[in-house]
C-alpha cells in the first residue's frame, strides 16, 4: 500500500515515484578480469538486514540515490545523492 523514501532533494515521497536498480557496487576497471566483471554483472547478495541500493527518483528530481535500508524492518536509514556521495569519496 505504501512505503516512503526521504529523497535528499525532494523530501518524503512514496515508492511509486522511484525505480530501483539494485545493489550499490563499484564498477570494476575495464581490465579487472573476468571474475571481477562476472561478480559485478551477475552475482548479488540477498542480505537480511542492512542493504545499500541505487534508487532513481524517476518521477521527481530524476537524481540517482544511494538508499540504505533494512530489508527485514523496511526502515530506511540513509538516503544520499549518488553523485554527491561518490564525489565526496563515500565508498559504494
Amino acid at each position: 500500500m505504501a512505503s516512503l523514501i526521504s529523497c535528499p532533494h525532494c523530501g518524503v515521497r512514496p515508492k511509486e515515484e522511484f525505480a530501483i536498480k539494485g545493489a550499490v557496487l563499484s564498477r570494476p576497471a575495464p581490465d579487472a578480469g573476468h571474475q571481477a566483471w562476472t561478480e559485478y554483472v551477475y552475482l548479488r547478495d540477498n542480505p537480511r538486514g542492512i542493504h545499500r541500493e541505487y534508487w532513481h527518483h524517476t518521477s521527481g528530481c530524476r537524481r540517482w540515490l544511494v538508499v540504505t535500508r533494512d530489508t527485514a524492518s523496511h526502515e530506511v536509514e540513509l538516503c544520499l545523492d549518488a553523485a554527491a556521495a561518490k564525489l565526496a569519496g563515500v565508498r559504494p
Partner: peptide, 9 residues
C-alpha cells in the same frame, strides 16, 4: 516539486 500526479509526472 516534481512529483507523480496520478500516473503522470
Amino acid at each position: 516539486a516534481m512529483t507523480l500526479l496520478g500516473h503522470v509526472s
